[in-house]
Amino acid sequence: MASALINNTIQVYFASVLEMEHEGMVSMFEALLASGLSGFLGCSSAIYEAALVEFFQIASVRDGMFVSKVQGKPVTISKELFAGTFELSLEGLTDMHEVPHDLVSEARRAFSYHGKMLSTSCKKREMEFEFRLLNDILAKSVIVKAGSFDAMTHERFLMMSAIYGGVPINWGRLLFNIFKDMVTPAMRQARVYAMQICVVLKNSPDLELRESKEFPPLKILTAKIVGTYISKNRNIYVDEDEPVVVEKPAEKKKAVSKKRPAPTVGTPAVKRKRTIGKAAQEAIPIQMISAVTTPAPKRKTPKRRLTLPAGSDDEIVDKEPAVESVVEQQREKTNVDDVDNIIGQIITETTQMETDMEEPSLTRSDGIIVEITKRSIS
Rank of each mutant, 00 (worst) to 15 (best):
F86C: 05
K300Y: 02
T355N: 10
G24Q: 04
D338T: 12
S378E: 08
K123S: 11
R272D: 02
D150E: 06
L93K: 01
Y113G: 01
K124Y: 00
S161Q: 06
V326I: 13
I58F: 10
I47K: 04
I276M: 10
E349A: 14
M160T: 02
S68W: 02
L90A: 10
S3F: 09
K224E: 15
M28F: 12
D314T: 01
I197H: 06
E359C: 12
G42S: 09
K69W: 09
L158P: 09
K278V: 01
S325T: 10
A151V: 03
A279Q: 09
A296L: 11
S68Y: 03
K258W: 02
P261C: 01
A291L: 08
S376N: 07
S365Y: 06
D366G: 01
E242Q: 11
L88R: 08
G266F: 10
K254Q: 06
T351L: 11
T94E: 12
M117K: 13
L218E: 15
P295R: 15
A194L: 09
R272P: 00
T120L: 03
L218A: 14
V167M: 11
G92M: 02
I286T: 06
Q196R: 13
D318H: 04
A322T: 11
G172Y: 05
V200F: 13
I6S: 03
D318Y: 04
K278M: 03
F14R: 04
R375S: 04
S257N: 07
E315S: 04
I276E: 11
I6A: 02
G42K: 04
R62M: 03
R191V: 14
I143R: 10
I369F: 00
K298M: 00
E320Q: 08
S312V: 01
M357L: 13
F111Q: 01
S257K: 05
H114N: 13
E247F: 11
I143S: 09
G115E: 02
M25T: 07
H97C: 04
S148W: 00
R191C: 13
T76Y: 09
F86Q: 06
I178G: 08
K273Y: 08
K213Y: 12
K252M: 07
Q330C: 08
S45R: 09
A162W: 11
D340K: 12
P268R: 15
D102F: 11
G165T: 09
A280G: 10
D239Y: 05
V336R: 15
S312L: 00
Y237F: 06
E128M: 11
G115D: 02
A2M: 03
T264Y: 03
S378C: 02
E240C: 10
E80H: 05
R375V: 05
A190M: 14
F111K: 00
D366Q: 03
L37H: 10
K248H: 13
D239A: 02
S325N: 07
